[in-house]
């Protein structure tokens, strides 16, 4: 569905991505894991044209979307859940959802999708008229996901959905990601929480200082000694506590 070949991105003179190649097949959950500054967020931003690629090619369903204006890419069926949620704090929950459907014109269907998102996240329905800034962190994350779903995307890209959330809520968020995937939405997940991400994903890539150093199925990567040492905690790796 999404294919990235030799993508290079530079901020001024600083090379953020040094030619990465990866693929997200239809209907799957693919994760990109890596430490701070590895280039995960840059990768996501360049997918939707928020940062410009220096070279390389990004294609979505066969069409070249490299450096395409953001609104065109969103209209083509990619939605984003930005890092740190970034809900519109002074707008109500409902208004936030409506902004998610901004590029659609089918009013009746939008109404249906509002109901669908409310069904998925009943908590949001209760808070429909509340300003989004008054929601808890977990609720805001649900809203950010709901908002992305409102564009009826073929694929959703999520940037660190677990960031700053309590462990129990993180579990909820990942359960929800699986649920959305089961409804047929392809997911590209960027995470620092490698443990949860690899458990959830079908396939994973490890990004280190702008290069992909390892790839494999979620399980394979979770078992890999180097990964365990680097991302899942050394002690846990030694004792074989991580599965």
């Amino acid at each position: 569905m999404l294919k990235v070949e030799n993508l290079e991105v530079a901020y001024g003179g600083i090379q953020a991505l040094r030619g990465i190649t990866f693929e997200v097949p239809q209907g799957k959950i693919v994760t990109l894991i890596g430490a701070n500054g590895a280039g995960k967020s840059t990768t996501l931003r360049s997918m939707v044209g928020l940062v410009k690629a220096k070279s390389g090619r990004i294609s979505f369903n066969g069409a070249d979307i490299t450096n395409q204006p953001t609104h065109k890419t969103i209209a083509a069926g990619i939605a984003t859940v930005p890092e740190g949620r970034r809900v519109f704090a002074n707008m109500t929950v409902l208004e936030n959802l409506k902004i998610g459907a901004y590029l659609r014109a089918d009013t009746a269907e939008i109404k249906k999708d509002e109901e669908w998102v409310y069904e998925l996240f009943p908590r949001l329905k209760e808070r429909s008229w509340q300003p989004a800034g008054t929601l808890s962190g977990g609720e805001q994350q649900m809203l950010a996901v709901g908002r992305a779903l409102m564009s009826r995307p073929k694929m959703v890209m999520m940037d660190e959905p677990s960031l700053g959330l309590a462990p129990l809520i993180v579990q909820d968020i990942f359960a929800m990601i699986r649920k959305i995937n089961e409804m047929g939405v392809t997911i590209l997940l960027v995470e620092q929480n490698a443990n949860m991400a690899l458990k959830t994903a079908d396939y994973g890539y490890v990004l280190e200082t702008g290069k992909i150093t390892l790839e494999g199925s979620g399980q394979e990567l979770a078992m890999d000694e180097d990964i365990r040492a680097a991302y899942l905690g050394k002690r846990a790796a030694k004792k074989g506590l991580v599965h």
Partner: peptide
């Protein structure tokens, strides 16, 4: 919906752009 898009831009330009608002 234009008014709503204006508000979204005021609230958070980057997020508004990521929602497909030109």
């Amino acid at each position: 919906s234009y008014g709503r898009a204006f508000l979204a831009i005021r609230e958070d330009e980057v997020a508004a752009e990521a929602m497909g608002i030109n």
